[in-house]
Write a protein that binds this DNA or RNA. Structure first.
Length: 325
DNA sequence: CCAGTCAAGAGGTCCC
DNA sequence: GGGACCTCTTGACTGG
């Protein structure tokens, strides 16, 4: 490596030491070189706790250096004379100390910076840079975590959505077969000679007179209003579904959805819906954009007045329809 | 201070 | 074994 190939002489030593802010008299040099091989620091530096460091028990800024000397006997030379442009890794203990400090508070006040620098034998600038980098890398990690969490959430929601789509299909099939049965029954009735079989009122429950409040609410929700007013058989079907399968009503959706969380809003799957575009049932079931809460979260008991139930209890609607059978 | 970037250093793998 | 190459980590710098 490059470090191995470095050649030092007295002159560049002096320059380097001055760059490092180390007094560079011949005695100082000697002291540094001596201390590097001094048995005083040859034990693990962990023998002196960081608490001691905080209390000022550490002898001087060279405390953390010997770790490198343990790794490589030549490191001390490198450490003392390394070129100013060259990057030096912090020792494990220095990093641990900084990490602990970072855990306690990831911002660095000037006083703390100076104190840390003194404790670790680093330049305050180095400490500042270390904290900056640490914050940046912590943020990156945090973003990764957040991304993973969001992805998991998305997968759950997608699974819920898929289940709902399946359930919708099932219910659709069910409604179709029931409708067929109903029509068949009506046909049989007609054949038996009853006169007013084909009146729409026979197929549909009498629309009750809405009270003033429900009237007002209807006007607030034009899309649903229009859908609910469809005076055909599928309208009746939608009433049944609304009462029996509250998952698709908008009852309580606003309170169940987290605000500003677009992951809860599903655009209709066009590929799914377009396969049966004439199906009024689908249209009445799904407004252009629909929301659905998690099944277990849904509050089915308090349907709003505009949720296709004409302001009547859903059980009654079911009765209107089934009483005709 | 942050985001983006550079570059040194260290570890791993492959090939001769 | 060791050199070449690659990748990742991390200290340092820069511009906003």
């Amino acid at each position: 490596m490059a470090a191995g190939g470095r050649v030092y002489n007295d002159s560049n030593m002096t320059v380097i030491l001055q760059n490092e802010g180390i007094p560079c008299s011949s005695e100082a040099l000697e002291t540094l070189l001596m201390s590097s091989s001094s048995p005083t620091f040859h034990g693990s530096s962990s023998m002196v706790s960081f608490e001691d460091v905080r209390r000022g028990k550490t002898p001087d800024r060279s405390f953390f250096r010997p770790l490198e000397q343990q790794d490589n006997g030549d490191e001390d030379l490198d450490e003392c004379f390394h070129q100013p442009g060259k990057k030096r890794r912090l020792t494990t203990d220095q990093v641990q100390f900084l990490e602990k400090s970072f855990e306690m508070e990831n911002k660095l006040e000037p006083e703390r910076k100076v104190q840390l620098a003194r404790d670790l034998g680093l330049q305050p600038r180095q400490v500042a840079i270390w904290f900056q980098n640490r914050r940046a890398r912590w943020k990156t990690k945090q973003l990764e975590k957040d991304y993973e969490a969001l992805r998991a959430k998305y997968n759950n929601l997608k699974a819920d959505y898929d289940n709902l789509v399946k359930e919708k299909e099932k219910l659709k099939t069910e409604v179709l077969s029931l409708t067929e049965r109903l029509l068949l029954k009506e046909k049989e009735k007609g054949n038996s000679g009853t006169s007013d079989v084909n009146k729409p009122s026979d197929l549909q429950p009498q629309k009750p007179i809405p009270d003033s409040t429900s009237e007002e609410r209807e006007s607030e929700v034009p899309i649903v209003h229009v859908v609910c007013k469809q005076e055909d058989i599928s309208s009746a079907n939608s009433d049944i579904l609304d009462s029996e399968s509250p998952h698709y009503t908008d009852a309580g959706h606003s309170s169940l959805l987290e605000p500003a969380d677009s992951s809860h809003i599903f655009e209709p799957d066009n590929s799914d819906l377009s396969q049966d575009e004439e199906d009024n049932l689908s249209r009445s079931l799904f407004p252009s954009v629909y929301y659905f809460p998690k099944l277990e979260d849904a509050v089915y008991s308090d349907l709003p007045a505009h949720s296709c139930n004409y302001g009547f209890p859903s059980e009654d609607q079911a009765l209107w329809f089934w009483s005709e059978l």
